[in-house]
Write a protein that binds this DNA or RNA. Structure first.
Lengths: 212, 212, 212, 212
DNA sequence: AATGAATGAGGATTCATTCAT
DNA sequence: AATGAATGAATCCTCATTCAT
């Protein structure tokens, strides 16, 4: 499971070395607690207990339960995007990039089931953070699609709707094949979805020497 | 907002006419309360208050807060499927059906924002109910795709993965264009998504001059 | 288990034959419910459910939960006393009567474990009824002891204290060997207690030809 | 009324001096509340109110209402046994010890009416604790009787039955003359019971050649 | 007489947050 | 910085009792 590196913005930044360590412990503990028990079941006591710190120490670094939660959601956003970006960086073209992105996403969900759950739950705990999470995704998608369209790699079409549709595909495949069950490999799933994204469902004319 | 008709199975079914009316009031109130405030913010008091009933009356018809919630989720499942099935019933082919289904879904989400929220939150309150909700969807999709493939309406491909991808598209477009903002009409969105589903992103040979 | 015959005083006496039957059913059901679950765990619903009657019917015959409970305690008093009196009636002397009474008491407790529990719990639910229960016992004991003393069957001594001591013996032996465990027969236990009551713990001179 | 010294085992033991004081206050308050109002009438609010603490503070030291109750019952067991043991320690022989024990018991019940009530009610709230309470007593009695029999201080007889009979005597005399009414002194009552225990009810031959 | 729906007071328990040390 | 005791609002649920039918 990914550690939540202390990039977060807190007005209560630690000044000493010890403080930095404590903050990190709390962050990791919070990720585990929220991920395993969900926001409402999670408790500050659970977090500090996991971190081996006293209850009150939590409030030395955070303002509230919701605040850490939001911090973690944002952190997850960066982590997910980074993970996908790394994978897709060297894709030869946009359509291949889509397939690789889905594969990366499923793998990511699989590797971070608990943290992934945090993001989903954000919808009901910190809706703005949740929307931002996906809006940033959508924005990146849109740009990618627009650029690809400019390069002639994909057919012309409304980037916005396409972006959200593509996100939906990733998220649901991530949920179904990443989190719920691992009965198919990410590559398999990504191949199937990649084909759908590339060619759609329409029957395709038999390839090759048909006319030859 | 849709009324939650008392199709639910309760071991505490009302035996009188008056009881039937009260149950219905409670069900509607619960849908409103959960939808507006979310599961955790919602309170039994809030429900009975909306229903104009006494606190204890809730427990005349339900065992617990979670139980009504589950009942509502299941109810939503039936409602959504019905709504889509009705619309798609006369589609000439599967690909058209997909487009129409998406349009129906977005419209449905738009019309039942609150109830829709209930389903999503189920993931964190009654996960099994949530999974069932989507599994039933997926199962229907799978059958539809397999049949269409048999009829040659769509290209061959793995029905399971395709089903989940298609659900993801609907859900995210429903969320984005149904619940979050209404900046595009369901028809527009469905058209864009329908095109994606039909042909994918691949550049298509310019029509027309082909034969020239 | 003993049926609670409707000897109780209720201002809500049934007037019809059907009413009499319903009352009896409720009484039996109440005895079972209270006996099995204890006063606080017992519920009116539980009683009417056992009786196969509707909830509201309970209040056709009783004023409150406590009232039935009291009625049952009194009933138990009569039953216990009757049971012991029957057994002791033909005892040749008081000391034999004590032994026989203890045996009868243990057997009674064994046969009516649940109802017996009701009496004990009365101490915390209807203390006056509880005290009355034992006071009546004590009074009978006192008279018996005084009469026996007059007949020279027992040594002179304070009847009141003796009465309570003897009741304590019965009750605890009844609890230990009647209700908690049946590892000794009532006759065995009564023999041991009878000997204690007859001769106390003091060492007795070897009988017979001691001096021979 | 006896204070409930914090000998109890709690997994929530206080770690500071202040905590120790609060726990003690709560324990005393609980004893008073349970003793005066009985288990079911007693409320956590009543306890913390008496203790001058906030409602939630109760749960800093206890897991539940039942847990404190049990702790109190066990505490009472230790207290009662200690009290009697102290008194009986220097008894010259077993029969005298019995009389002294009864006297001590009645005095104890009189001095701790409320706590005594708690033990009795345990039968219906924490039956295992109640049985343990008396089993420990019975076990001590049994050993004492067996030893005395070995020393020839008492006549031979079944120690188990005798033990429960003797406990019954103490408990009922304690209830009648300790808790219910104080119309006789403990010494008087103990003398009467002591005589019964020593010699039983059988008529005793006129002493010595008294009449000669 | 019988039914069962409706009532609402009552209470245990949880837990985020504050604060004194 | 760290600690852990103290706080008290908030809520679910139970159930005896009443009442309209």
């Amino acid at each position: 499971m990914a550690k939540a590196t202390a990039t977060l913005v807190t007005d209560k930044a630690p000044r000493t070395e010890r403080g930095k360590r404590t903050l990190q412990k709390l962050l990791d503990a919070a990720a585990a607690e929220f991920g395993e028990r969900g926001y409402h079941e999670a408790s500050i006591h659970g977090i500090t207990h996991r971190a081996g710190a006293a209850l009150g120490t939590f409030y030395t670094y955070f303002d509230s339960k919701e605040q850490v939660f939001r911090a973690l959601v944002e952190h997850m956003g960066r982590l997910t995007r980074q993970s996908i970006a790394d994978r897709v960086a060297h894709a030869p073209d946009r359509i291949t990039a889509e397939r690789m992105g889905i594969e990366a996403f499923i793998e990511f969900a699989r590797a971070h089931k608990n943290l992934y759950r945090i993001v989903m739950e954000a919808q009901f705990v910190a809706e703005d953070a949740y929307r931002d999470y996906y809006r940033i995704f959508a924005s990146a998608y849109r740009q990618g699609l627009t650029a690809a369209e400019g390069r002639g790699e994909i057919s012309p079409g409304p980037a916005e709707e396409r972006a959200w549709a593509l996100i939906g595909i990733s998220v649901f495949l991530g949920m179904r094949y990443g989190v719920w069950a691992e009965d198919k490999t990410p590559a398999e799933v990504a191949a199937a979805a990649g084909d759908l994204i590339a060619h759609g469902l329409s029957p395709r004319p038999a390839r090759g020497g048909e006319g030859a």
